[in-house]
């Protein structure tokens, strides 16, 4: 459990980090280290260079401006979980952060590190999709913003380029009549999501769904938007039967992977169960 030798770099600005990224061969960015370091200890990853983002000022922290939270990529899960403004305005983000790993993981692991790593069973990707997070990447030529739907590309692959750093995550605050919920079925060993579903709905006074987002994580190689579920709910009056029928489409478009915890059939079934449960809870919150 000792990693192979590597060279350690600790830039103090994003600019310097980008320079190093450009210059060095086989370099990896280090955020909280709760995915990369275990892989290095097992020698499954053996990068020659580690560029630690931990010494860069301004990469961590939570701000709210004009209905959008900007969360620094190096903000820990614990900071997200315990942030009072987040709890008040986008509680589902706090709830999602609260079920990542254990307290030790949450105190070191970061929202940006996790979302850039894109573990297929990570929790936050479902919520990122459901709420429509935006990802701000910084490169030599400046900043660009990527929408959640374009972020998760495949197994542990995202839209961030090799010569970019994910610096900020933007989380929109939902308007009145909104409610959201993240529910997961945890792996008995790792407590990663076998299946996790985040549902966010906005309803008008008559209970008609005006906005909906459903993200599914865990079951496939990447987190995806449950478009079929969303389509079945939008502009419909939400009730148990509508939700139940919509949830049946939760596994559509998910490339469900079988493993020791269950078959394709079972995991697809779990997607539907947890979509229903998350939607029911989200609706209750939207109306409560």
């Amino acid at each position: 459990m000792y990693p192979a030798a590597f060279e350690y770099h600790a830039p103090t600005s994003v600019k310097d980090a980008l320079k190093l990224l450009d210059k060095l061969d086989d370099a990896k960015l280090l955020a909280g280290g709760h995915s990369l370091i275990p892989m290095m200890k097992l020698r499954l990853a053996q990068p020659k260079h580690l560029i630690d983002l931990g010494k860069i000022k301004g990469l961590a922290g939570i701000k709210e401006e004009k209905g959008v939270f900007t969360v620094g990529a190096m903000t820990t899960h614990w900071e997200v979980e315990s942030s009072k403004p987040i709890k008040a305005k986008v509680p589902v983000v706090s709830e999602t952060a609260a079920v990542i790993g254990d307290p030790a993981v949450r105190n070191k692991g970061t929202i940006g590190g996790s979302l850039a790593h894109a573990d297929p069973a990570a929790d936050m990707p479902a919520t990122a999709i459901a709420l429509g997070f935006e990802f701000v990447c910084e490169g030599a030529k400046g900043k660009r913003t990527v929408k959640a739907d374009d972020w998760f590309k495949g197994l542990m692959t995202t839209a961030v380029k090799d010569n970019e750093v994910l610096t900020t995550i933007r989380i929109p605050v939902s308007g009145p009549g909104s409610g959201a919920c993240y529910m997961k079925f945890p792996h008995p060993a790792s407590r990663f999501a076998i299946v996790g579903v985040c549902a966010a709905v906005t309803v008008d006074k008559s209970g008609v769904c005006k906005k909906v987002g459903v993200g599914v994580t865990g079951a496939g190689t990447k987190a995806v938007r449950a478009k079929g579920v969303e389509a079945a709910l939008l502009n419909k009056k939400l009730d148990a039967a509508t939700i139940e029928a919509a949830a049946q489409k939760a596994a559509d478009g998910v490339d469900v992977q079988p493993d020791l915890q269950g078959s394709v059939e079972y995991k697809a079934h779990l997607c539907r169960v947890f979509a229903r449960r998350a939607l029911e809870a989200a609706l209750k919150r939207a109306q409560g």
């Binding site: 097992l42 792996h187 008995p188 060993a189 790792s190 990663f192 020791l260």
Partner: peptide
Amino acid sequence: LVTGSMMDYALPK
């Protein structure tokens, strides 16, 4: 051994 780590081998919690 496909259950060769604490990520895969579930001890009771």
